[in-house]
């Protein structure tokens, strides 16, 4: 029973981690707190659903949703953040701009869906579970776990083993020095925002499938969870995002399983406060540098 709950928690945590990774990548590299990340996640779920409704296979729906949200994220950077960046010290202005973007996207989705909750057609994913070590595992849970492991591995490889990734970390460490070395920051923004949006869209489709419920406001609770993961793991720390995401998923699942449902948030946030009392900069954060993306 406990093993089963732990596994369920890990799967939920894997989605939190995917969501938080993109959120934290943009923050860690560019110091931009993109509060539209939850809305991008929601758009991903919608695009995935519409693709399936159009008769496309599920894998194609995933692909289209991820590319769409990746490009959407790049476009948000172009329209909302880039003009502000030119003015210099604009961290706060960008935060406000991202709230504006979030409102626009949520309201567009509200109109497009008539505020209804939409569902994937029945049988799009096989629901027949299989059993492993006495645990009941649905095919979708298996897919979520596999996709999360694959994404984290690919992202780590990209950041720490490729020349592009090295340039991303260079910009994260010192954007001006990177420019003097011949790094073109515009290319870096393009990459980080694309990856960030892509991960949000992926998480959106996965959550849409897992709970089979897609609506315009589904991004909000995930943005809040994303914040918790960000703070818990340490601002800008990708390792922290993965560990804290998984931890949050497990804690939430266990508290739902063993305590009255109303207590879940109380437990989650009490634990967050407890961790912050002991480690004010999060599990993997440190006082000197909050841009841990750059670190191995």
């Amino acid at each position: 029973m406990l093993a089963q709950q732990l596994f369920n928690g890990l799967v939920l945590g894997a989605v939190y981690a995917l969501f938080a990774l993109g959120f934290n990548l943009v923050f860690g590299v560019h110091k931009i707190m993109n509060l539209a990340h939850g809305a991008i996640f929601m758009v991903g779920a919608f695009v995935g659903l519409y693709s399936v409704t159009l008769g496309l296979p599920l894998w194609a729906a995933f692909l289209i949703a991820m590319v769409f949200t990746g490009l959407l994220s790049v476009m948000i950077d172009f329209v909302a953040f880039r003009p502000l960046r030119k003015t210099g010290d604009a961290e706060f202005a960008m935060l406000i701009a991202s709230i504006g973007v979030e409102m626009i996207l949520v309201n567009l989705a509200l109109r497009a869906s008539d505020a209804r909750t939409l569902r994937f057609p029945f049988g799009i994913v096989p629901v027949e579970p299989f059993f492993l070590f006495g645990m009941r595992i649905t095919p979708l849970q298996f897919v979520i776990a596999a996709v999360a492991v694959l994404c984290v591995t690919l992202l780590a490889f990209y950041l720490y083993r490729t020349s592009f990734g090295r340039q991303v970390r260079a910009v994260s460490s010192n954007e001006r020095a990177a420019m003097l070395l011949g790094v073109e920051p515009r290319m870096i923004y393009l990459q980080t925002f694309f990856i960030s949006g892509l991960l949000a869209g992926l998480a959106g489709v996965l959550i849409g499938l897992a709970f089979n419920s897609i609506n315009f406001s589904m991004g909000e609770p995930y943005l809040l969870r994303g914040f918790v993961v960000l703070i818990l793991g340490g601002l800008g720390s990708l390792r922290g995002a993965v560990v804290a995401g998984l931890a949050l998923g497990i804690i939430q699942t266990l508290s739902v399983a063993y305590f009255p449902t109303g207590l879940t948030d109380i437990i989650v946030y009490s634990l967050l406060f407890a961790v912050l009392l002991v480690r004010p900069n999060g599990l993997f954060g440190d006082a000197v540098s909050d841009a841990r993306v750059a670190r191995r």
Binding site: Q167, N174, A177, L180, L181, V183, R292, A294, R295
Partner: peptide, 17 residues
């Protein structure tokens, strides 16, 4: 203005850019 979060080797490699 070295890239303090990267290794010494990586700093030199970035110079090749």
């Amino acid at each position: 203005q070295i890239l303090s979060d990267l290794s010494v080797y990586e700093n030199l490699q970035l110079g090749q850019l």
